[in-house]
Design a protein around this nucleic acid. Structure first.
Lengths: 225, 225
DNA sequence: ACCTGAACACCGTTCAAGT
DNA sequence: ACCTGAACACCGTTCAAGT
C-alpha cells in the first residue's frame, strides 16, 4: 500500500508469525510468501530481515530451543545422590527436547535446515556435557554421549513425523496391496514376517512418550559406565 | 512429441532416474518435472506410474532398502558364540543402514516421506527382531530395541545432513557473529560454553563412521541385558 | 492404458524503483 | 533503511484431449 521505512518488525514478531503458520497449516505453509503475507508485508520485505528462507528457518530453530527447559540440579543433589540424580535430569532434558519438537509439526524440517550451532543449541550441548562429565565420563566421552543423546531424540522425532505425515495418502490406497521396488503389485505377505506381525500392536503405540523414555533409559545405561 | 501408448517405462527405470538426479543435483532436483524430464516424458505422464510425488519418494525408499545388506549369521554362530556374534551382526546392519542412507544426499527427506512399512523395511525390521530375540530379549523388548536402533541410525543421518547442507550459507556470513532468537546481533561468547569450546575439535569429526559405531555399541550395551 | 499441452495455484529470489 | 511491484525460473497437480 504505502512504501517507506514506516514501521519496523522485530525478528521475534516474524518468528512468532512463522510458528503460528507452522502450527496452523504445517511446514509447507511456512513459505516466504506465507509468512510475509501473515505479517502484512510483501515477500521481498522479508528479505530485509532474513537473507534467505533458510536463515528464517534457522532463526526458528533458535527461537524454539530458547524455550527448552534444561531443568536444574542443585549442588547438593549432584554431590549426594550421585549419578542417579544426574541421570534423572538427563532423561528430563531428553523428554523436554522431544516434547518441544513433537509439539510443533514439521519441527524436524526446521532442525535439518542447518547445524545446531546457535547460542541456545550450544546452551543445550553445554548442559549435556556438564551432566555427562558429572557421571564420571571423560570430556571426550561426554562429548560423544551428548551427541548420541541428541541423535536419539532427533531420530525419534524423524521416525514419528514420518509415520504421521501420510494419513491422506494411506487412506486412498488399499493397505493390503503394496508396490515393491520393481513396481509389481503384490500382497504384503505378513506370514513372511512372523515376528513383525506379532509385534504390530506394540508397533502401533511405540511412538509414545513411554517408548521414547524407554529408549533413552537404555541408551543412558549404555553411555554411563 | 507423439502421444499414444507407445513404450512403457518400468518403475525400476523411473526410480533409477530419480536416484541419478538425487546423486547428481541433490534432493531439491528430485521433482516430478525433473524426473519426467530426465526420462523424456511429460510431468503428467509420470502420474500414470505414481499417483503423487510422495508415492514416488516412497518408492525410492523401498528401492534403496532393497539394496540393504542384512548379512548372515550361521546357526553354528548363534548357537556357539552366543550374544557376541549376534551383537556384531547388529552393528554391521546398523553400519550398512547408515552407509546406505549417508551415501545418498537427501536420503532423510526420502525416509520422512512416509512410514517405513514397505516389504524391504519389514525385512529389515524382521531381521532386527530375530537378532534381538536371539540375545534373550522378550519379543516386546526386542520390538522396542529394534525400533530404538532404527531411531538412532536415522537420527544420526538427520544430524549429519543438517551439518552438511549449509556450506554456501555459512560461507557468506561471519561465523563469529550470530543472530539470537530476538534477532539482535551478538558475539557468540564461546567463554560462556567452556566445555563445548574444548570439545569443538572432537565435534568437527564426530559425524564420522567411528562416532556412529561408538554410539551404536553403547546403545546395544544398554539394550542387550 | 499411456501420453500431450494448457492451465491453476503456488514456490524462492532478484531487481529497479519509490519514500 | 525499509518497502513495493514486476519479473524470472521454478514447483505439484488437474483436466480435457489425443492415440
Amino acid at each position: 500500500m504505502r512504501p517507506g521505512p514506516r514501521r519496523s518488525l522485530t525478528h521475534a514478531e516474524i518468528l512468532d508469525a512463522a510458528f503460528d503458520l507452522l502450527e496452523a497449516k504445517g511446514f509447507a505453509a511456512v513459505s516466504v510468501r506465507g509468512v510475509a503475507g501473515s505479517l502484512g508485508i510483501t515477500p521481498t520485505a522479508l528479505y530485509t530481515y532474513y537473507p534467505s528462507k533458510n536463515a528464517l528457518l534457522r532463526g526458528m530453530v533458535e527461537h524454539l530451543l530458547a524455550r527448552l527447559d534444561l531443568g536444574t540440579l542443585t549442588e547438593a543433589d549432584s554431590a549426594e545422590v550421585g549419578v542417579a540424580a544426574v541421570r534423572a535430569r538427563l532423561v528430563r532434558i531428553a523428554l523436554s527436547l522431544r516434547e518441544l519438537l513433537a509439539g510443533h509439526a514439521g519441527a524436524l524440517g526446521l532442525i535439518m535446515s542447518g547445524p545446531l550451532d546457535g547460542p541456545n543449541a550450544m546452551r543445550l550441548n553445554e548442559t549435556l556435557l556438564e551432566q555427562f562429565c558429572a557421571t564420571g565420563l571423560s570430556l571426550d566421552d561426554a562429548a560423544r554421549a551428548a551427541y548420541a543423546l541428541q541423535v536419539y531424540a532427533l531420530g525419534s522425532i524423524a521416525l514419528e513425523s514420518a509415520e504421521v505425515d501420510v494419513e491422506s495418502d494411506a487412506a486412498t490406497s488399499d493397505p493390503l496391496i503394496v508396490t515393491d521396488a520393481s513396481g509389481a503389485a503384490l500382497w504384503t505377505d505378513l506370514a513372511r514376517f512372523p515376528m513383525s506381525e506379532q509385534t504390530m500392536t506394540l508397533v502401533a503405540e511405540r511412538n509414545s512418550t513411554a517408548q521414547f523414555a524407554w529408549g533413552v533409559e537404555r541408551l543412558l545405561a549404555g553411555l554411563i559406565g
